[in-house]
């Protein structure tokens, strides 16, 4: 069962980066998330699996798809230079993979080393256990992750927020607080007698 999920996962991940159409790539990413959630559930980490589907597939990827559909990404320009770099890149990648394989084809690097965890006892709650760990042993990294998210917000706002100089934005408070003196200027002028035009005058 693991191999089934793993194969689909690797295939989907490969398609994410090779798919020509960005919408297809995003959909394959959804597939990859679903299969990795399946692997997690097999490892009896149900909460993580469900959270992955809910948060990533349900929320993040939908947003992602939306953005991809909205943006008109020019693919041909992105693909420029792909073929000229391909031979060098491929040679390096193949060499790296070969070296890693030569090194790693040894004993002690199989599933024997990582046996299945014992089945949980009845009444064991995965979620409760995770929650307990997050707020006790892992409270420090948990808080740090929160700070990182805060920095992400600050950075995103700092980089994208622009105050338009001549925007059509109207401040309601300023509208209400407007005084008569701001709008109306009363000019006192001496009264003058309007001259009546004479006959035959061009003006």
């Amino acid at each position: 069962m693991f191999w089934f999920f793993a194969t689909i996962l690797v295939f989907a991940a490969l398609r994410v980066i090779t798919a020509r159409n960005p919408v297809h790539a995003a959909l394959f990413l959804v597939l990859a998330f679903c299969t990795s959630a399946g692997i997690w559930i097999q490892l009896e980490a149900e909460f993580l699996g469900i959270a992955l589907i809910l948060v990533y597939v349900g929320a993040v990827m939908v947003l992602f798809l939306f953005v991809v559909m909205m943006l008109d990404i020019n693919l041909t320009r992105l693909r420029e230079g792909f073929w000229s770099y391909l031979p060098v890149g491929a040679v390096v990648a193949v060499l790296l993979i070969l070296e890693m394989m030569v090194y790693l084809i040894q004993p002690y690097f199989g599933l024997v080393e990582a046996p299945r965890p014992d089945a949980a006892v009845a009444g064991y709650s995965n979620t409760k256990e995770l929650g307990r760990l997050i707020y006790t042993d892992y409270v420090y990294p948990f808080e740090l992750a929160a700070v990182i998210l805060l920095v992400a917000i600050v950075a995103a706002i700092a980089l994208t927020l622009r105050h338009r100089k001549h925007g059509k934005y109207i401040d309601p408070a300023a509208q209400i607080n407007v005084r008569r003196e701001d709008r109306v200027r009363i000019v006192s002028m001496p009264s003058v007698k309007k001259e009546t035009p004479k006959d035959g005058d061009p003006s």
Partner: peptide
Amino acid sequence: NHLLTLYLGLELLSLSLYAMVALQR
């Protein structure tokens, strides 16, 4: 003293630095 905190600290630093480099939009 933990690889997790080490990594989180690194990300915190790097993220702030990326944003600072791009601050002159």
